[in-house]
Design a protein around this nucleic acid. Structure first.
Lengths: 202, 202
DNA sequence: GACGATACGGAATTGACGTTCCGATTGTCA
DNA sequence: TGACAATCGGAACGTCAATTCCGTATCGTC
């Protein structure tokens, strides 16, 4: 929670002044909240207000709104990737995969901006965290297909697409707040080998 | 294609002048193209340019960008609803439902704005076309569940949510342009009664 | 073909944000 | 405690896109 985002300057920049570090934390927390709630539409002024800080201070720590958004989502991806890594030990690959999907869904459901960032930059230039996550998911998919639990025509790239969908459905007003769980449950059932009614189009 | 959107004024507004009607058509066509391509981000100036018309003219016909967007999507919904109505005669409800999903997916894939509009205004205040579509889908679901083809815990509200997801995955850069078909195929398989691994959370 | 009434075009206005700037503060180190 | 550098705060600026305005051009009618 504190290692979020390396300091501004490049290498060897001396440690931040006490008040600066404090403010940086406040900005990050405020930005998390603002973007989670309102998506990338949240305004820098709003972030500053929530952090009880001037806009200038926000910009002192992050050169750009985009950079701030980027930093936050990279951090989130990294966190998900870390949990995912732990699942590689699991015996049951399908179960591990399913768990991972639920955890990712949780993150997406709680953070509107995350879905938006993910959608906006699909397979082009993933951030490190996303990259690692992809590797892990690929491995889980491979194993789950080997055991015959997952349909064999699924590919890694399908996952962010599907999760993007889950997230987007979450972003907007919906009957019950937990609607995304229904969505994901249906998807997961559709990913089982036993559910395949045909081969997925190339 | 021509009945799109009733004239501006309220009742009894005399018929539009010839050039006005012509321009209105051009504006609608241009707006379709622009919003389909770029989503709601497309600019009014761009719409005007494509229509070979001044911005003022666009505003003469639609008081607001929002209104224009609304008119277009209502029209699209109405069109989908019409095709859907035809499917109520089909013997095989599941097949009819599946077909409908594919057709809707096609519409969403070809029109970025449609997904965005749909997502932005989920179950709050649906437009007439969406309302009718919902009724038809509800009926198809009922029948498909009765025959045991569709899992029994699906409800109508799930459908726009799922399709919203399909659409959102489409909106953004993706490996292959037809990726949404994979997404939808997985969803549909997950909706089969035979795929259900448990009951969907309330 | 002359006269309103309509409609048009597109420059100008407005409002909303992201970002920059700079005088005022505050932390750090001697 | 004093001096200097790192930070702040938040007003001011610039850009971009929606919307308005109004002089000009067209249509429909007599």
């Amino acid at each position: 929670m504190s290692q979020v985002v390396v300091p501004p300057g490049d290498v060897a920049s001396r440690p931040l002044r006490a008040d600066a570090r404090r403010n940086r934390e406040k900005v990050i927390a405020a930005a998390r909240a603002a973007f989670a709630e309102q998506g990338r539409e949240a305004q820098m002024d709003d972030v500053a207000r929530r952090a009880e800080v001037g806009v200038g201070t926000v910009y002192r720590h992050f050169p750009t709104k985009e950079a701030l958004l980027e930093a936050l989502s990279e951090d989130t991806f990294a966190r998900i990737a870390e949990r995912a890594r732990g699942k590689l030990d699991r015996e049951d690959a399908w179960a591990a995969f399913e768990e991972l999907m639920w955890e990712a869904g949780d993150s997406l459901a709680g953070d509107r901006a995350l879905t938006e960032v993910m959608a906006a930059r699909a397979p082009g230039a993933p951030c490190p965290g996303q990259l690692e996550l992809t590797d892990i998911v690929a491995e889980l998919i491979r194993r789950a297909q080997a055991t015959g639990d997952m349909r064999p025509d699924v590919v890694v790239e399908d996952v962010p697409m599907l999760m993007c969908g889950v997230g987007s459905a979450t972003s907007r007003p919906h009957p019950c707040e937990e609607a995304w769980r229904r969505h994901l449950a249906i998807l997961i059932d559709g990913l089982r080998a036993s559910a395949a009614s045909g081969r997925l189009a190339r």
